[in-house]
Design a protein around this nucleic acid. Structure first.
Lengths: 156, 156
DNA sequence: CCGTGCGTCATCCTTTCGCATGATTTTGCC
DNA sequence: GGCAAAATCATGCGAAAGGATGACGCACGG
């Protein structure tokens, strides 16, 4: 995680230097400074995106392995244990992150269309995830899936 | 996902234009073009990071597993107070006994047909009750109705 | 007696779900 | 670099759900 920042900084510095050097020879003289700006902008926007994803993406993976040990009872269906451990129950059921994410929205009473708009995916995709989730939960209706999800500790 | 890209593009364009305009007045004349470059770089790196996180980061965060599992405390007291508080919450919402009865079965994940068979009434009757209940709850889907019912204390 | 609320049932119609199936792309891992 | 899992999207179809409306019987209270 730190390495990426370093790489980012280094590459950024090199790039700035490089661009600064090149501009005296080609860009600025022939074209306007706008091209130069846009170039830098695009370059660093891309770099920023890369940094952003690299920096904030790997969050859950480490925890997964450790969890499985101390979750002996799957059934409680607790009334209000607000932050139920997702990943433990999730992997026990074999449901994916995305499917669980959608299942949560299903439990909130959203339609497939609304879920799609919320997550910026098509309604068909939502349907697919739903189907798979229902299948894994042994449910044939969304209400049933929600009920099963609560029983299995997937949902609060 | 599309929206963020749009916003990013728009803001980017505006920024480039803005910077291009300002540089003629302040920066370039007084300092070198390097400052200008670095400015753009930083700006768009930040924007890129923002875009990156916004776009690809909505993964789930680290959730500390809750070790307190075998504590069956809240169950027994609920059933008693439920029948009493049922009527209170029920009348507050204006929902009838029958409608609530059916709503409970809906929350259990039963289909209209199954509910009809359970209560020995026709599926159409179940639909009617559902419609009325949904109407009183301000819900348009059964999952939504279940959610509202929980919020209003009608359902456990 | 008659209105009102409730429960029951029906029909017509539209929308939403759920399922099967296949395809493509992205991503994590070896 | 390639494999496997996951995520994405599409299409088609039958089933279920939901809305609108009308009708019938029953109990209860004014």
């Amino acid at each position: 995680m730190r390495k990426q920042v370093l790489i980012f900084g280094l590459v950024g510095g090199v790039l700035v230097t490089l661009l600064q050097w090149t501009e005296f020879h080609f860009v600025i003289l022939e074209h306007s400074i706008a091209i130069y700006s846009v170039l830098i902008a695009i370059l660093f926007a891309g770099a920023g995106i890369w940094l952003g994803t690299r920096l904030l993406a790997p969050r859950e993976r480490i925890v997964n392995r450790i969890v499985e040990v101390n979750v002996p009872v799957p059934a409680p269906a607790a009334t209000d244990s607000q932050l139920t451990s997702d990943n433990a129950a999730r992997e026990r059921v074999g449901i994916t992150r995305r499917e669980l994410e959608i299942l949560k929205l299903v439990a909130r009473g959203l339609s497939n269309r609304e879920i799609g708009e919320t997550l910026f995916v098509s309604e068909n995709t939502v349907k697919t995830h739903c189907s798979r989730a229902f299948d894994k939960l042994g449910a044939r209706r969304r209400t049933e899936a929600v009920q099963r999800g609560k029983e299995l500790g997937l949902l609060p």
